[in-house]
């Protein structure tokens, strides 16, 4: 079985993003970029599936500019076998990404698509679900544990108030939540080896899929800063305010 891991290059989670002065977006020029942290978890899960014998090959794919190949190299340094860069200079929405991934999946025929539950830039949390719908595959989102039993995966998902375990017929989409695993370090020898692993580049246009945007960003703003409230004198006053004014208890 093959595991396909779609990954995204995003502004590094340590970077404090800034809204650009003209309000058109977030200033990403010159800031450190790295692999979306949830995608790192998805890559790690793919590698673990191969190491456990459940999978034979781990293929990573990203859709983005030429520079996005650095996250593919990182994934291969972690242990992915090969990589595909679908090149485009445009920013795609989850619907468009799902269309492009569907074309790649039809070519690669993976048994599992392991992907991050959301990217930390647009916070959409949607690509996996849209992709599953378009493929007619089952989905197991927000996974915290995955085991493979032949043609089925058993996936524990994070749900409101706890967790639930599902039997998932393969092929399926699994989206990774934080607790699924702790991704390994890309060691220096492995980074060196990853430079020699195969990386295929193809143009997004060659996939012939609909990648039009359905959302237009009108403006991006910084959230309003919280204003200081009132100072109270006693616990009784506090409880009263919480009950009658804020209505939260």
């Amino acid at each position: 079985m093959k595991v396909l891991v779609p990954i995204k290059r995003v502004v590094d989670y340590n970077v404090k993003v800034r809204v650009s002065a003209d309000g058109s977006g977030v200033d990403t020029q010159g800031v450190k970029m790295s692999m979306n942290p949830f995608d790192e978890i998805a890559v790690e899960e793919g590698i673990r599936l191969r190491e456990s014998g459940a999978a034979k090959e781990v293929v990573v794919v990203t859709i983005g500019a030429q520079a996005a190949q650095d996250v593919l190299r990182t994934a291969m340094a972690m242990g992915a076998d090969r990589a595909i860069l679908v090149k485009t200079d445009e920013t795609l929405e989850p619907r468009a990404v799902a269309n492009a991934l569907k074309a790649i999946i039809e070519r690669e025929n993976p048994g599992i698509v392991s992907m991050g539950k959301q990217a930390i830039d647009d916070d959409m949390n949607a690509t996996g679900q849209i992709l599953a719908a378009k493929l007619g595959w089952p989905q197991a989102t927000f996974a915290s544990k995955v085991t493979i039993n032949g043609e089925r995966a058993e996936v524990t998902r994070e749900i409101d108030g706890g967790s639930a375990t599902y039997g998932v017929p393969l092929p399926a989409i699994i989206t990774a939540d934080l607790r699924l695993n702790e991704p390994r370090y890309a060691s220096l020898p492995n980074i060196m080896k990853a430079r020699k692993k195969p990386l295929e580049t193809l143009e997004l246009s060659s996939l012939n899929v609909d990648t039009a945007s359905r959302l237009t960003t009108i403006s991006v703003a910084e959230p309003a800063e919280r204003q200081a409230g009132v100072m109270l004198n006693s616990v009784a006053e506090l409880v009263e305010k919480l009950k009658t004014e804020a209505k939260v208890i």
Binding site: D123, M124, Q129, A133, R157, D160, R214
Partner: peptide, 23 residues
């Protein structure tokens, strides 16, 4: 925008071929 909503609604968007608007 709960675990349930975020599991089902984007899948619906995929079936309808629309772009969901989360959160």
């Amino acid at each position: 925008a709960t675990a349930t909503g975020k599991n089902i609604l984007p899948r619906l968007a995929g079936l309808l071929d629309v772009q969901p608007i989360p959160d």
